[in-house]
């Protein structure tokens, strides 16, 4: 019964997306095209990767708002190293960035576990700290197109199933492969391993998880490091897509990703959340972002719509939870 309710939420979300798409398509028939879909996937690909990492952290009962700074730190440092050593290898870029970002995630995990304070405050601090360390000690110069190692650009431009239209060549970005891989690996970890059960158990009740033999410290270590590693991956993909390196991009968009995860049905107190839901949440936000102009509103209405959807979804899901808890005489406030 419980599983049914959760599934229903995502079905409703899917129906909302489809109805909205239909509406946009009726107002502006240019919306219905494969290009739109491919474009949506391309622009949202970076967010799709980090939202999955954030999802694991949120299911385990924590929250991470430092991942964008981690992504920037990882990719910026990696590309600096590539400049210094003259390396032009994609595998090196991804490997080193994931390694650096994983280490930063580890620092987050240690701080959260050690200080026993709300992870939001701690990761807000590390967000500034990481960004500050990067810009003060590693560098704060921008690098435009043409300067970056050539392998990055060729990855960013590469497509699969490309086809010819009258506007030029069009294709699905190759970044979809890392997204699918990440989704698959995360799904496997979450639903087919002991670790995944531990993550969900920790989110529901730390005490209960400890008593049935999980080690909360190790689980936390894993989720924050994993989130950091995915951020490192995302940082390089972002650089390949914009084909430039800025020291002040990305940071500041964390809360939008958190909002996406929450719209997708992830519970901030932990224990509940679906990969598919989080992906739908990101897609809703990007869909609004790209289609408001098509239905005749300027993009400055974006925040209003996202905020309204967010407030409504929070109110509905928390109210259901409250009713359920009150029935069982649980007063969690």
């Amino acid at each position: 019964m419980k599983i049914k309710i959760k599934d229903r939420y995502q079905t409703i979300l899917l129906i909302i997306i489809l109805t909205y798409s239909l509406f946009v398509g009726l107002v502006n028939p240019a919306f219905f095209s494969v290009e739109t879909l491919f474009d949506l996937i391309r622009t949202s690909s970076t967010s799709l990767i980090v939202v999955i990492g954030l999802l694991l952290v949120m299911i385990s009962g924590g929250i991470d708002v430092s991942f964008m700074a981690v992504a920037l730190f990882g990719s910026y440092t990696t590309i600096k190293i590539m400049f210094a050593l003259g390396i032009n290898s994609l595998i090196f870029a991804f490997g080193v960035s994931i390694l650096i970002a994983g280490l930063l995630g580890l620092i987050n995990a240690l701080l959260v576990n050690w200080l026993k304070l709300p992870p939001f405050i701690i990761t807000l601090g590390t967000q500034s700290l990481f960004h500050g360390i990067m810009t003060t000690f590693i560098g704060d110069k921008s690098f435009g197109a043409g300067v970056l190692p050539s392998c990055l650009n060729s990855f960013g431009q590469a497509t699969i199933f490309s086809f010819q239209t009258k506007d030029g060549k069009f294709g699905l970005t190759v970044s979809i492969i890392p997204i699918l891989l990440v989704g698959l690996i995360t799904w496997f970890i979450l639903y087919r391993t002991m670790l995944g059960r531990g993550i969900i158990a920790l989110g529901n009740s730390e005490e209960a998880a400890r008593r049935i033999g999980f080690n909360p410290f190790l689980i936390r270590l894993f989720v924050y490091t994993y989130s950091g590693m995915l951020s490192g991956l995302m940082g390089i993909i972002y650089v390949t897509q914009v084909n430039a390196l800025y020291p002040n991009k990305l940071v500041g968009e964390e809360l939008m990703i958190v909002a996406a995860a929450v719209i997708g049905g992830t519970k901030i107190t932990g224990g509940q959340g679906k990969i598919f839901g989080a992906i739908l949440g990101v897609l809703i936000i990007y869909l609004l972002n790209s289609t408001l102009i098509l239905i005749g509103l300027s993009s400055s209405w974006n925040d209003l719509f996202v905020g309204a959807i967010l407030v409504i979804s929070i109110a509905v899901s928390s109210y259901q939870e409250r009713i359920k808890n009150r029935k069982n005489m649980i007063f969690t406030e």
């Binding site: 809360l255 909002a259 929450v262 209405w301 974006n302 925040d303 209003l304 719509f305 996202v306 905020g307 309204a308 967010l310 407030v311 929070i314």
Partner: peptide
């Protein structure tokens, strides 16, 4: 949520 809404 309300932060996004008020900014919106």
């Amino acid at each position: 949520g309300t932060m996004t809404l008020y900014r919106g």
